[in-house]
Design a protein around this nucleic acid. Sequence first.
DNA 1: GTCTATAGATCGATAGAC
DNA 2: GTCTATCGATCTATAGAC
Lengths: 198, 198
Amino acid sequence: MARTVSERSDVLPLLAEAFREHGYEGASLALIGEATGLGRGSLYHFFPGGKEEMASAVLGEIEAWFETNIFRVLRTAEHPENALLQTLDATEEYFRSGRRICLVGAFALSDTRDRFSLSLRRYFSEWRAALEFALSKTGETPAEAATHAEEIVLSLQGALVLARALDDPGIFSRAIGRVRSRLPKARTKRRGGAPRLP
Amino acid sequence: MARTVSERSDVLPLLAEAFREHGYEGASLALIGEATGLGRGSLYHFFPGGKEEMASAVLGEIEAWFETNIFRVLRTAEHPENALLQTLDATEEYFRSGRRICLVGAFALSDTRDRFSLSLRRYFSEWRAALEFALSKTGETPAEAATHAEEIVLSLQGALVLARALDDPGIFSRAIGRVRSRLPKARTKRRGGAPRLP
DNA sequence: GTCTATAGATCGATAGAC
DNA sequence: GTCTATCGATCTATAGAC
């Protein structure tokens, strides 16, 4: 009987899936209880602030994941062309090739936007800024990099919307493929060739 | 006292704004009552099926607007290049240059997706198909037109997500500008010019 | 730390007066 | 046609046993 989840961080992925599937309002505590296998008592033990704190924690974990696996990689990469490709792969995997929606994007279109506006803002602006930084390091002008970065984020988000609406994950895969093909080609030390990866 | 709205169709735009602002779950009947100035009795008189019928009717009106002002224009245009520009203008105006979200896209990312899946599917696939048809009439190959159409719809949707999250309508305007600039150039009878609209 | 029971508010929907 | 009153269900959050 005595379930030993014992770690708040163990609950977060389950919470995230519940919010992704039902939205903030749609994810009732009864539903969250089912998804996590925890009773109300346990949930309020881990998240005294209730549902709002649950969603906030989930957003925090998402931001942390992107910071580690996407943003930081783009900002600190020695070879930005490779970092761009690598983070696109990670992004495709994260969204399960279009079968998983972006919770941050979904929140942005719902009335929970105001409640978490700071998180949403930070997530998208950091993403855009990290891409912009890497793209400018590949030789794009500041204006090109800014536009290009914005277009990448926007394409991925739009692809997730469309993939969901049309129930066709392929839309997301195709969109990521186009983003990939429009990336600046890697310049390697041995000049003159048209190499792919070092 | 005796309010004389008397037309179901007069209520639809107010309903649409309520759903856009609060989402399906978030738009309670109390809120809808405020937004429309109608009591529960009147609302259930117009929409015996309750909230679901209200949302369904709103989706229907949205589809009808796009069918008239976008899809049909694209399918029946004599000069597809001009039709593409014209419908992009109409689209920009419809979404208030990025200050208004797409209710269909928002529903697609929420858990109401399943409830209205047919409407969502139809809306996006008709939009995509109409664009594809017009683009192929401009001389794009079937493959090019299919990809291009998908990318336009997806860019607009993604731009609306990003514009909302970052509270920056300019993102949508810029995205529409890029879509416009990538359209096939209009071939006119008086050749050599760079005409805008007929 | 986890549970059940339940309070208090709000939900969608209905009934019936006018 | 429009209103108010109200039902039963469901919601978030809390209390208290174990």
